[in-house]
Amino acid sequence: MIKAYLLTTGADGHSHVQEGHLADAVPYDVHTVSFKETAPHSFLDWHTAPDTQYVVCLTGTLHFVTHTGEEFTLHPGEVLIAMDITGTGHKWQMQGNDPWRRVYIVFDSAKGINFVPEDDK
């Protein structure tokens, strides 16, 4: 299973995170795919996701925090499903000495996602 974190905006206007995994063999309706690299020791203060997107972490480790104090750490080989495009958002801080290399896959959230929450195992 591929570990995944789902970031969504709740009815309270804040970002919330769920831990889980990606379901197998689900087709995607993809809008764009892009690649990015960020230098080690970088951070990004409070922001929302620019689009509904899968963020596939290739290298680097990041610690995320939401305004409500929810936290998680994204490692290489894991996926962030960023759907908190409104509200108070989240911030991240890189850990370690590796650059953050990732793939952004922008998708249509109306078509559904292949996320299985941890408690549904």
Rank of each mutant, 00 (worst) to 15 (best):
M1K: 09
Y5R: 07
G10M: 10
G10Y: 08
A11T: 14
A11D: 14
S15N: 10
H16Y: 06
H16M: 03
V17M: 08
E19D: 11
E19A: 14
G20C: 02
H21S: 15
H21T: 13
A23Q: 13
A25K: 15
A25N: 15
V26E: 13
P27W: 08
P27N: 02
P27C: 08
P27V: 09
Y28R: 15
D29I: 13
T32Q: 03
V33S: 09
V33K: 09
S34L: 11
K36F: 09
K36C: 09
E37Y: 03
E37A: 10
T38S: 14
T38G: 10
P40V: 05
H41T: 12
S42M: 13
L44T: 13
W46V: 08
W46A: 01
T48M: 00
T48D: 04
A49W: 01
D51E: 14
Q53R: 06
Q53H: 03
Y54G: 01
Y54S: 02
V55F: 07
T59Y: 01
L62Q: 13
H63L: 12
F64R: 02
F64V: 01
F64Y: 09
V65I: 14
H67I: 09
H67N: 13
T68L: 03
T68S: 12
G69P: 05
T73Y: 10
L74G: 05
H75Y: 10
G77D: 07
E78I: 03
E78Y: 02
V79Q: 03
I81C: 05
M83H: 04
I85S: 04
T86W: 03
T88Y: 04
G89I: 00
H90M: 08
K91N: 02
K91T: 08
Q95G: 07
G96S: 07
N97R: 12
D98T: 11
D98I: 00
P99H: 00
P99C: 00
P99K: 04
W100P: 03
W100I: 00
R101H: 14
R101D: 12
Y104A: 08
Y104R: 07
V106S: 12
V106N: 15
V106C: 12
V106L: 08
F107I: 14
F107P: 01
F107N: 02
D108N: 10
I113W: 12
N114Y: 08
N114E: 14
V116W: 02
P117D: 04
P117R: 05
E118A: 15
D120Y: 12
K121M: 10
K121S: 11
